[in-house]
């Protein structure tokens, strides 16, 4: 009887909701740390999840949203646009890497690409803070510097995870769309101005 109870305890059915949520949040947080210190590790690949990418994508899209609702000037990035760019771009890169012969599953790749937006989300946060200050060339230079550094960080982190899954002679081909993807996002962050 006791062994039966113990067995029951080890399953996740019986635990409180708080424990479940905390465990999942811890897993997501651990993966964030892996992106910030990119080392050769398979954590992001082994147990993938799409919670982190969703959180990052929504945060980025919300921060890129302009505060004014002006129908004349709707050329700025909108929530849906950022959302579509992130997911459509990630799916395209994944399909491309599969077509090039990479041995990585669809959702693993989506997970890595989504988590590696983290530096760019941080860059967006910094940019919004910097934009509170006086606008001018120095302001722009600071934002340019931050965005370039975070862009490079994203590229380095994602290639550290994804490069091993590609055939060695084709890494450049698989990395080019990744580069384009993060470049478009970082360019959107750099040109963002709140109205």
């Amino acid at each position: 009887m006791r062994s039966h109870i113990r067995e029951f305890d080890s399953s996740t059915l019986n635990e409180s909701v708080q424990n479940t949520i905390m465990r999942d949040l811890k897993a997501v947080g651990k993966k964030f740390m892996h992106v910030l210190y990119p080392r050769k590790s398979n954590t992001l690949l082994r147990d993938w999840d799409l919670w982190g990418p969703l959180i990052l994508c929504v945060t980025l899209a919300l921060m890129l949203q302009r505060s004014s609702i002006d129908s004349e000037k709707d050329g700025g990035p909108q929530f849906a646009e950022v959302f579509v760019i992130v997911w459509f771009g990630a799916v395209t890169i994944t399909l491309n890497s599969k077509l090039l012969g990479g041995n990585i599953s669809f959702f693993q790749s989506l997970c890595v690409l989504g988590y590696c937006i983290l530096p760019l989300t941080v860059a967006m946060l910094v940019c919004r803070l910097v934009l509170l200050a006086e606008p001018g060339p120095i302001n722009f230079m600071v934002r340019l510097f931050v965005v370039i550094v975070m862009f490079a960080w994203s590229i380095v982190a994602s290639t550290a995870f994804l490069a091993d899954s590609q055939p060695p002679n084709r890494k450049a081909l698989a990395i080019y769309p990744v580069f384009l993807f993060y470049f478009v996002i970082s360019w959107m962050i750099l040109t963002f101005t709140p109205q």
Binding site: E72, K73, D74, G75, Q78, E81, V84, I85, W187
Partner: peptide, 21 residues
């Protein structure tokens, strides 16, 4: 597509009933 998106943004192109993307 990326270059065109860049061109559209810098020229403040407005597209009714559709997104730039």
């Amino acid at each position: 597509v990326a270059i065109l998106l860049h061109g559209m943004k810098t020229s403040d192109t407005i597209i009714r009933e559709g997104t730039l993307m």
